[in-house]
Design a protein around this nucleic acid. Structure first.
Lengths: 208, 208
DNA sequence: AAAAAAATCCCGGAAAACAGGGGTTTTCTT
DNA sequence: AAGAAAACCCCTGTTTTCCGGGATTTTTTT
C-alpha cells in the first residue's frame, strides 16, 4: 500500500482527491491537512507517508518553502505539487527544491494516480500541461523565483500599496537612498527594469 | 428536486462538489461544464437548471461577465459564485451583476448545500468568510471592479511587461500623449495614483 | 439619429523613478 | 571566528511618469 497524505486548504478539493484516489486500491490516503504547520507537526509526531500531495498555495507558507523543509528532514518522502499555476518559474522552483512531481489542478483525476505511481518508482512526473508550459519556455533560461529578503518583501508590499520612495523611507525610518537600493536590487533579482514589472511578477508568484 | 449545474474547470473540484451534493437527496446535479462557452450553449439548447454553481475564474470568460450574460437571458436561474478570491471588489461585482450567492473555496462542503437551499428560497447567501471580508471592508465605499476598455487592457498589459510610454506608443502606432491619457484614465478608474498600483490591482482581479 | 462612451491627440511643469557608480555595519551561516 | 549575505547609507544626472488642464474623431449603444 502506498501511504499518501494530502496538504490542501480547500475541503472540496480534498473531497475530490480522496474520491479519486479511492479508485486505486494500492493507494491509501492516511491523512489530510489544511496548512503547512499542521503537516510539519504531524510528520514530527506520528505520520509516515510515502507520498505527499501538496497544494502550492497554502494559507500559511509557500509550497516551495514547505517542500524544502520537508525534504531536508525526510528525504525519502516524495512530494507531488498540485497547483493552478503553470508559470515556469513556479514549476521550476518546486522541482529544484525537491518536488518529484507537478500536476496542474485542471488535470484529470487519473493524472494524479499516474503521478503517485511514477514518483514511487523513483521517477519524476509532470502532467501534460506542465510539460507543455516548460516546453514553450524551452531553451536557455527557465528562471526560478528569486529569493527575496525580509526587507525587500516589506518594501515590495509598500510599493504595491502605491507608496512612493519618500513615503516608504519615512514609514520605515530609513533614508530614501536605502529604499532606492532595495528597489534596484528587486529589479535586478527579477530581471526587469522597472518596479511595475517587479510588482506584476511578484503578484504572479504570490509573493505579495 | 433542485436541478443544479456546475461550471468549473478543475475536474477534481467537480468531483468533490458532486460528491458533496450527492449527500443531499433533494439536489440533482444535471451537468457540469469546464468553461463559459459550453454552458451558454447548453442553456441555449437543452439544459434548464434551477441553480448554477459557478467558478469565478474560468479559462475563457470572467465569472462576472458570464453571470451578467446568463442573468440577462435567464433571469430565473440562481447563480452561486465559487471562488478563491475574498477581495471585496470581486465579491461586490459578482453580486451586483446578479449572483445570489458567494462561497469561498475554502468553505466546508455543507456551506454549499446551505447556499443552494438559501438561494432557492429567494434569499442571498454569503459564506462565513465572505461575510467577514465584506464586514472588514465596512463603512462607505466597497468598490466594484472597474470596467476597463479593450484599449486600456491592451496598454495595461504592455505596462505590465515593463514597456515605457514611448515604447508602447511605438508598438501601437499611436502618440505618446494617447498612451498617457489611457494611463491617466486607468489610474482614475482604479482610484490610485500610480501605474504600479494599477497593475497590482489588475493582477489581483485577474484582469491581466 | 442622437447621445454616450471610447479612442485619439496636445501641452508644460513638477515629481518621482532609474541607472550607475560608491561604501559601512549588522546578521546569519559555516 | 571568518566569511558571506543582508541591510544600510550616499551621490549625480537622466529618463519617465504624474498632474493639471485641454480638444477632436470614431465607435457603440440606446
Amino acid at each position: 500500500m502506498i501511504k499518501v497524505i494530502v496538504v490542501e486548504d480547500h475541503p472540496i478539493m480534498v473531497e475530490g482527491l480522496k474520491n479519486i484516489l479511492r479508485t486505486d486500491l494500492t493507494i491509501d490516503v492516511i491523512g489530510d491537512y489544511g496548512n503547512g504547520k499542521s503537516v510539519l507537526q504531524a510528520l514530527e509526531e506520528k505520520v509516515h507517508p510515502d507520498v505527499i500531495l501538496m497544494d502550492v498555495n497554502l494559507p500559511d507558507v509557500s509550497g516551495i518553502n514547505l517542500t524544502t523543509e520537508i525534504k531536508k528532514k525526510y528525504e525519502d518522502i516524495k512530494i507531488i505539487a498540485l497547483s493552478v499555476h503553470d508559470e515556469q518559474p513556479v514549476i521550476h522552483s518546486m522541482l529544484q527544491n525537491g518536488a518529484s512531481g507537478y500536476v496542474l489542478k485542471n488535470a484529470l483525476g487519473n493524472e494524479i494516480i499516474k503521478a503517485i505511481n511514477t514518483v514511487m518508482d523513483g521517477e519524476e512526473y509532470l502532467c501534460t500541461s506542465t510539460r507543455e508550459a516548460l516546453k514553450s519556455a524551452d531553451q536557455d533560461l527557465l528562471k526560478a523565483i528569486p529569493r527575496i529578503t525580509r526587507r525587500e518583501k516589506e518594501i515590495l508590499q509598500l510599493i504595491g500599496k502605491g507608496l512612493t520612495t519618500i513615503q516608504i523611507a519615512e514609514q520605515l525610518f530609513i533614508s530614501t537612498h536605502t529604499v532606492e537600493s532595495h528597489r534596484k536590487n528587486l529589479m535586478e533579482k527579477f530581471g526587469v527594469n522597472n518596479t511595475t514589472s517587479v510588482v506584476k511578477l511578484a503578484a504572479e508568484y504570490k509573493l505579495l
